[in-house]
């Protein structure tokens, strides 16, 4: 493996790690483990922990995938491995 593809893979794994941390934090964190604590806060008529479990985590998942698609495109071009 040359240094370019090593750098590319390292950048990819870095991006994946960052996204998976947020993925975990909104669903398992805010939606499950800390839901009780967050329920003290209200978002309109929603208790916040309940909102994360039944609404919020889904919206954030969508944002994460499009963010990933965009960032991967940038990384592809930076290391010159993008499709034509």
């Amino acid at each position: 493996m040359d240094s370019n593809s090593q750098g590319y893979w390292k950048a990819t794994l870095g991006l994946l790690t960052r996204i998976l941390i947020i993925w975990f934090a909104v669903s398992f964190g805010a939606g499950i483990l800390f839901a009780d604590a967050l329920n003290g806060i209200k978002l309109g008529g929603y208790p916040l922990g309940f909102w994360f479990a039944q609404q919020g985590s889904i919206y954030i998942f969508i944002a994460l995938i499009f963010y990933y698609a965009k960032k991967m495109g940038d990384i592809d071009r930076q290391f010159d491995v993008h499709e034509d």
């Binding site: 939606g31 985590s57 998942f61 994460l64």
Partner: peptide, 28 residues
């Protein structure tokens, strides 16, 4: 979800969160 209340959120998170894994770890 109607029967389970808050706990029914596990279906909502489980069946959508998998797409984050699919998009980043497998599909491309």
């Amino acid at each position: 979800i109607s029967n389970m209340g808050y706990g029914g959120g596990l279906f909502l998170m489980g069946w959508t969160g998998g797409y984050v894994l699919l998009a980043m770890l497998l599909a491309p």
